[in-house]
Simulated scan of single mutants.
Amino acid sequence: MGDVVTTESHPGFDLDLSAPRLVQLEGQEEPMIMTELEKIQAKARGIRFFDVTDTPELGTRAHLRVANKPSYPAPNNTQTVKSVIESLKIQNLQDILAKFTSFRTRHYRSQTGKESQRWLLRKITELTEEYAPEALQESISIREFDHSWQQSSIIVGINGTSADDDGVVILGAHLDSTNDSPFLPAPGADDDGSGTTSILEAYRALIEAGFRPERTVEFHWYSAEEGGLLGSQAVVKSYESRGVNVIAMSQYDMTAWVKRGTKEEVGIVTDYTDPDLTEFNKKLVEQYLSVPWVETKCGHACSDHASWNKAGYPSVFTIESAYENVNVQYVHTQNDTYDISDEFSFEHILEFSKLAVGFAIELGGWKKSS
């Protein structure tokens, strides 16, 4: 791990390393003040945290939602889900990731980070225009969720058809990347180009099939996960303030790595997640994936599901393997590319696309025309 670059004069970056930030560490009720540089150094040492500078009140009403949790049925749309899964294509994953990792960095305070986000937004729009039937396009919204930094988050919604169910189902990934030294290249193929492409290919296959959920289903690509879950916390704060009824959220962060010498499996994270939704997630893996699940733990503020969990919304996280076998060698370096090792597997990424399809259909429902 290299030394963190400390100069502030880097073209294309809007990053004040001396800026004070409010940071919440594990076990802390009261946040502490760190400079941006101290925050970067802490992350490079493997310390996870929420940067709560803009969202200090998030979580104060969590108990109200926890007391009114929904229940989750066993998967029961098997043939429908499998028919959509059959249309998933590895070539699409490869094409998206080739472009998405070509930006020097997707750091949320960099110009190329903004450019990569705008490219992803255009790609989502193009796929929607190409694959969604015209009648379905009228029910799809694609928007940027702006932040105080350069890079926006992206929110895509497929409106629910039910007049009686205001529930929302969310599938998320983060679109930013970082190097431990933030001004250095960060292609971010696994972290989190892999999760980004997993849910994007699921979205493409769903709209190609004319997916009309009974509940609204949304796909989120968050900015600034690497800055302390900044983007997702801002989104959750907005949803909380508007009283959005989020019944389930599933995060996809690092979905590509199959460590040499291990068997292929997916990691079901059991800490800082909803236990009932986690059990449902296991059933989806058993029903629709070609590989088994294994329980694992990821720790405090591990990815964007933690922002939803903090606010009391049911959320789950599925990662590429048991945590001890994830890609720690290359993430947050300039070598996080899809061609650095045969341990990077597009076939494995596709398993998570299958999971995303199952999650969307089983929890969103599907109003089929007669």
Rank of each mutant, 00 (worst) to 15 (best):
Met1Tyr: 13
Ser9Pro: 04
Pro11Asp: 15
Asp14Asn: 06
Asp16Cys: 02
Pro20Phe: 13
Arg21Asn: 04
Leu22Thr: 05
Val23Leu: 09
Leu25Tyr: 15
Glu26His: 00
Thr35Cys: 11
Glu36Asn: 12
Leu37Arg: 09
Arg45Met: 14
Arg45Trp: 11
Ile47Thr: 13
Arg48Glu: 01
Phe49Asn: 04
Thr53Ser: 15
Leu58Thr: 09
Arg65Gly: 03
Pro70Cys: 00
Pro75His: 00
Thr80Arg: 05
Val81Gly: 11
Ile85Thr: 05
Glu86Gln: 14
Ser87His: 15
Lys89Gly: 04
Gln91Lys: 15
His107Leu: 06
Arg109Thr: 14
Gln111Glu: 14
Gln111Trp: 01
Thr125Val: 02
Tyr131Lys: 12
Glu134Lys: 04
Glu134Ser: 09
His147Phe: 03
His147Ile: 06
Gln151His: 09
Ile154Asn: 04
Asn159Lys: 15
Gly167His: 03
Leu171Asn: 10
Ala173Tyr: 12
His174Trp: 06
His174Asp: 06
Asn179Cys: 00
Asp180Leu: 14
Pro182Arg: 10
Ala186Thr: 10
Ala189Asp: 05
Ser194Pro: 01
Thr196Lys: 07
Thr196Glu: 03
Ile199Thr: 10
Ile199Ala: 05
Ile199Gly: 12
Tyr203Glu: 01
Ala209Val: 13
Arg212Asp: 03
Glu214Cys: 02
Glu218Gln: 13
His220Thr: 05
Glu226Asn: 09
Leu230Glu: 13
Val244Ser: 03
Val244Cys: 00
Met254His: 04
Lys263Gly: 02
Ile268His: 01
Thr273Trp: 10
Thr273Val: 14
Val294Asn: 03
Thr296Arg: 02
Cys298Tyr: 05
Ser303Arg: 07
Ser307Ile: 11
Ser321Lys: 09
His332Glu: 12
Thr337Asp: 11
Tyr338Asn: 13
Asp339Pro: 02
Phe344Leu: 02
Ser345Gly: 06
Ser345Ala: 01
Ser345Glu: 11
Glu347Tyr: 08
Glu347Phe: 04
Phe352Lys: 13
Lys354Leu: 07
Lys354Ser: 05
Val357Tyr: 02
Gly358Ala: 06
